[in-house]
Design a protein around this nucleic acid. Structure first.
Lengths: 240, 240
DNA sequence: ACCTGAACACCGTTCAAGT
DNA sequence: ACCTGAACACCGTTCAAGT
């Protein structure tokens, strides 16, 4: 099935390069994704990659788009969106994004930061907007919220991925915090244990925070409150 | 006032290096902050910097800490924290962070991603925790929320800073979006104008979203609701 | 069409040496 | 104590050349 050249060598395809790049990023971080390193991994000259990608930037774009495509696969086709309350639909969409991002944490910073007019990006945007419009938001507000929600989700994962802990093991950190002057840092000392622990896999917690914010926004903007949103017709202006 | 060596040359100090590095980052992005470039800017050999910083990583840490120090200066001493409702106090703290981050957007990704046990970091943490504890959160919850809030704030600015727009001017983007098949992308087409505009300086909007989320969390966790939080004594367990 | 080879202007960092 | 100089193993990218 793979294309082969006459001397038995596998041909290089953009998709194969992106796959390899994602694997490299997952294994050793985005910093390891280097034109030269990647070429070596693919048994090819560095400059070979420049036939398929105009620049490294373009390769990074393709990697980001790879994640968007994965998200789309998880989210399923448009018709898949269940008829439940919009909060759940929104949560499901954000959860799908979160799942993919967590699988490729070092690539997360690249997602939704380049402007994505790719097919996958547009389809994901369409789904987000559909849910928010159904929730009663105007196109403008839906856009702002969709953008915020998507970026916040990536940020939640990305920030955690970029985290480097310089000061070694948690026990030493806790001890240092506990030893602080209690009159100057009463709250820090009190929370030394919590502060020294890494915060666990709770992007979920962060997502809930974002969702709660959106819900509060929704309550402020729309006259009704869930459940049973009024019958907002698909394209016509709101009810008379 | 500046230290000088006998041949009339300014002596290199860590603070001077960090200042210069921040200026460089603000002017040309974090990517321009290079040991060699920075050394050139300071009229010094690249290796001179290695006397003051063990590695580039350590220099980046120092830059991040520079921002934390600026935040602390804006936030003022602990006693400055007004007696108002905790939402406002929290908003003020996050606003201060946002202000500083917006002044150095390209450095934002570095803030709160290395573990900060520096003086500035600890003092900022103390303030955050104090506000959240007064709001009725337990030390553990206060820690989680403080972390989330701080990271989200930096993420809001950082993601925007990392944004690279590849597809040129907004008009062309809008046209492309409007030209999409309307049966496949009804919501995108509908929101073409909103989607093609860059989203303006509304980290403020994002902050409100975060705050709304925290308030919702607070309402869920504490039996009372603002204003007039119960007299939570400073260190003793909650009221009988 | 697809890939190689040599070359250029950059990186961070080490190690020995100067003052 | 504070800085220089030469060197090493890396970068992304261009340009001419091979098949």
């Amino acid at each position: 099935m793979k294309p082969r050249t006459r001397n038995g060598q596998d041909l290089l395809t953009p998709a194969a390069v992106v796959d390899r790049a994602l694997m490299l990023a997952d294994a050793e971080g985005l910093g390891a994704v280097t034109i030269r390193r990647l070429a070596h991994e693919l048994d090819v000259t560095p400059m070979a990659l420049y036939w398929h990608f105009a620049s490294k930037e373009e390769l990074l774009d393709a990697m980001a788009d790879g994640l968007l495509t994965e998200m789309l696969a998880i989210a399923g086709p448009v018709e898949t969106v269940p008829a439940g309350p919009w909060r759940q639909q929104l949560a499901a969409l954000l959860d799908a994004q979160c799942t993919v991002l967590r699988a490729h944490p070092s690539v997360a910073p690249l997602v939704w930061t380049r402007n994505n007019l790719s097919d996958a990006a547009l389809r994901l945007t369409e789904r987000m907007l559909a849910v928010l419009r159904r929730a009663g938001f105007s196109p403008t507000d839906a856009t702002r919220i969709a953008r915020r929600a998507a970026r916040m989700t990536t940020a939640l994962v990305a920030v955690r991925a970029q985290f480097v802990d310089g000061d070694g093991d948690p026990d030493r950190v806790r001890d240092r915090l506990s030893a602080l002057p209690i009159d100057e840092f009463p709250r820090v000392v009190e929370a030394a244990v919590a502060l020294s622990g890494c915060d666990g896999p709770d992007e979920h917690y962060g997502l809930e925070l974002v969702l709660a914010g959106i819900e509060a926004e929704a309550a402020r903007l729309t006259p009704f409150s869930e459940p049973n949103p009024p019958p907002t017709p698909d394209r016509a202006p709101p009810q008379p």
